[in-house]
Write a protein that binds this DNA or RNA. Structure first.
Length: 719
DNA sequence: GTGGATGAG
DNA sequence: CGCTCATCCAC
């Protein structure tokens, strides 16, 4: 906390003569630390500004609706934002749109903008909620407004004395210390002089004003008799000034853009944030340092950032209270039962200590486009269609980030996939050195999906999400000087090019005819098999094109710029793969011909987890599964016991194994040996209930040489 | 690199 | 609720 308040300051020289002079609790040093945004000075002034019901306000502004009318933003059947007039009807985020209308018949419901398949831009569609199966929501309009607001806020502050952090789409932190320092010296020139005895540790003079004008700001009470207005010190003055600044910022945002927001002003980020939520909407709250203890003490600590979840629950359970006041009684050692670092953090936090800085230039680190499928989707083709939308979404956001101008650029692309309780993800680097384009992203994304599909159990898929990440700041124009100036033009051309190619038709998924014993084995041309083939074709084509790009690498830059349309790149003739490294670590084709070996190696199949027999529990099993003993089943093909939690993965393993064997057969144009086409390849729906007890089991299944406990089938692999 | 957990909004 | 974003961690 702050230093003890020496109402009568001591000075190194004449103690007696100074005795009578009342002093501030703060030193010259602490005052001057304001200039440099030092997180240590107790005079520091931080503000938090939070837009009121942001999405809802965006819609009232966009549609020029009277803001006193109740309005909610709809996403499918749910509400994601409710303005304050509507909240008066008791509406909250958990009600459906129909329930909301029942409670408030005059409620204005506006659905969020959506991307429609095939469209090149999101739009506000009529009756969008009916199109959950074909549209994906877009938050772009809100991101754009957020950007405008941030810009407006920054323009309301002096260019040289601002430090603004975007904390979320509708929140900012401002460190007003430097600006407040300047204003303070203007208003109180006596502070500008050198400290007595040139000693920065000397205390400041007292504040000349006896009464501060807090305007209409909500002032948090101190909980003390006369603490409200008595003896203002410089920290109070700083907060008054900061409060004026915040009031002005808010007025600017309102005047120029029409948005109301709430503010919190205090000595650090944590308190400021709590302050902005204290009185809403369209108000601001000052928490003076002398009020912090009271303010926090009355609060539930679960309101504090980071304590709103599991950690907060743990603390509540551990100490039997959710009140800050009561938690204050716990010594540090007790709090450390939550973990050393966590305990220390909590100890300081509930005492109002937070020295974290306001970080300006908070750039985005990743971006994601996702959709939950209701109902689930069931084919590679469907998945690819969504990928188009994701890519369009993400790429347009990349453009906003300055990717075309090479200001920033993502390094990796990642596809997440959920099937039932299982999630999978595949990622790949985004090739650097070339301009990023929609086609490039789409190609990568499609390849990632193909990887997931060939890995097994992909359908029905309940969720897909595509993200790019690892954004790097301007790898500024250090690269090849040639062909750099025209980038802007080319980028434009590129975008229109991409557009046509990306919305074009699918590359013809090469259908492999499956007949004879294969057919009898897998049944009629199953959906699974078609999918598998389509995915595999994509993988193969991708590898081909990758190889060609590598060959092209010596070519001048302008070649690459005219990215071939998707169809072309897929239709390129397959160049035989005679790459030395590829066969190097390949133990896959031990039983196959050399030529087949090379081809097979090109398939990233099957994946690590499918090759690996090491038992591991499947993700988010219901809690009981972790608690109770895990049964095992016996795989008579592998002659090995496995926990039943591994059952489905293990089955996938066999599916992949059989498929790859089958494919090898096809490549060689030879009949499949009957031994491979045997009975019960895989129990399609393993009955979870009856796992065989350990030890129960028959001997060898197939001729596969796999020993219990060391089931290691080595496949050639792939990145 | 894969994939979960956690948390905020 | 769904959709973003971020960070941390185990393997």
């Amino acid at each position: 906390m702050s230093s003890p308040a020496p109402f009568f300051a001591s000075s190194p020289l004449s103690i007696t003569s100074q005795r009578r002079t009342p002093k501030s609790r703060f030193t010259y040093k602490q005052l001057h630390q304001l200039k440099s945004y030092s997180p240590q000075t107790p005079l520091r002034v931080i503000a938090h500004v939070d837009l009121d019901a942001f999405y809802a306000q965006c819609e009232t502004v966009r549609l020029n609706i009277d803001p006193s009318k109740p309005l909610a933003v709809q996403q499918w059947q749910g509400l994601i934002a409710i303005n304050y007039p509507a909240r008066a009807y008791g509406l909250s985020r958990h009600v459906t749109s129909t329930e909301a209308l029942k409670a408030c018949p005059e409620l204005i419901l506006q659905h969020v903008a959506t991307w429609k398949e095939g469209d090149e831009k999101w739009a506000y569609h009529e009756e969008a909620f009916k199109h959950i199966a074909t549209h994906k929501v877009s938050l772009d309009p809100y991101r754009m407004e957020s950007r405008k607001i941030l810009k407006c806020i920054k323009e309301s502050l002096p260019e040289k004395e601002q430090r603004v952090e975007k904390a979320s789409i509708d929140e900012v932190f401002m460190d007003l210390s430097a600006q407040v320092y300047t204003i303070l010296l203007e208003r109180y020139p006596e502070l500008g002089g050198p400290p007595p005895y040139d000693d920065p540790s000397e205390y400041l003079p007292i504040v000349p004003t006896t009464v501060l004008d807090w305007k209409a700001d909500a002032l948090v009470e101190t909980g003390e008799e006369d603490g409200e207005v008595k003896d203002p010190d410089w920290d109070d003055v700083c907060l008054v000034i900061a409060s004026e600044i915040v009031r002005d910022v808010r007025a600017q945002v309102k005047e120029q853009l029409g948005y109301t927001c709430s503010g919190g002003i205090a000595k650090n980020k944590m308190i400021a944030k709590l302050g902005s939520g204290y009185k809403k909407p369209n108000q601001q709250t000052v928490i003076r340092n002398r009020a912090v203890k009271h303010f926090l003490g009355e609060m539930k600590f679960t309101k504090i950032r980071m304590l709103g979840g599991k950690l907060g629950d743990e603390a509540v359970a551990m100490f039997g209270t959710d009140k800050v006041r009561e938690l204050l009684e716990q010594p540090l050692e007790q709090l450390k039962r939550l973990g050393d670092d966590t305990g220390s953090w909590l100890y300081n936090t509930i005492r109002g200590e937070d020295h974290s800085e306001v970080n300006p230039g908070t750039q985005i680190k990743s971006m994601l486009s996702a959709k939950s499928f209701r109902p689930a989707i069931n084919s590679f083709d469907q998945g690819v269609r969504w990928l188009r939308i994701f890519v369009a979404d993400i790429f347009s956001r990349c453009v906003e980030e300055g990717v075309l101008e090479n200001k920033r650029r993502p390094k990796t692309i990642n596809l997440h996939h959920r099937q039932g309780a299982q999630t999978k993800s595949r990622q790949s680097p985004i090739p650097q050195g070339k301009p990023l384009s929609e086609v490039v992203l789409f190609d990568l994304a499609k390849n990632l999906l193909a990887q997931i599909v060939v890995d097994g159990r992909a359908w029905p898929c309940a969720n897909l999400s595509l993200s790019v990440g690892g954004f790097e700041d301007g790898i500024t124009n250090n690269k090849g000087i040639g062909g750099f100036l025209v980038r802007g033009e080319e980028a434009k051309a590129m975008m229109s090019n991409n557009r046509s190619s990306i919305s074009g038709s699918e590359p013809p998924a090469k259908r492999r005819r499956t007949k004879g014993n294969i057919k009898s084995f897998f049944g009629p041309p199953s959906k699974e098999r078609k999918d598998f083939d389509a995915a595999r074709a994509v993988l193969k084509a991708h590898q081909e094109s990758t190889r060609e790009e590598e060959d092209d690498n010596e070519e001048p830059d302008d070649e690459e710029f005219s990215a071939p349309p998707l169809e072309e790149s897929k239709a390129k003739p397959m160049t035989p793969t005679t790459n030395r490294h590829e066969s190097m670590d390949d133990s896959f084709g031990a039983r196959t011909s050399p030529s087949a070996q090379l081809q097979i190696k090109a398939e990233p199949l099957p994946t690590q987890e499918l090759r690996d027999h090491t038992p591991h529990p499947i993700k988010q099993q219901p809690y009981q599964l972790y608690q109770k003993k895990i049964d095992t089943f016996f795989c008579d093909k592998c002659n090995i016991h496995l926990p039943i939690t591994d059952r489905s993965e293990h089955d996938d393993y066999h599916v992949a194994l059989d498929l790859s064997r089958e494919m090898r057969q096809e490549e060689r144009n030879q009949p499949l040996p009957t031994s491979a086409v045997k009975k019960t390849p895989v129990a399609p729906k393993p009955s979870r209930g009856r796992g065989r007890p350990p030890g129960g089991g028959n001997g060898s299944g197939s001729g596969r040489a796999v020993e219990k406990g060391q089931a290691k089938l080595v496949f050639g692999r792939q990145s």
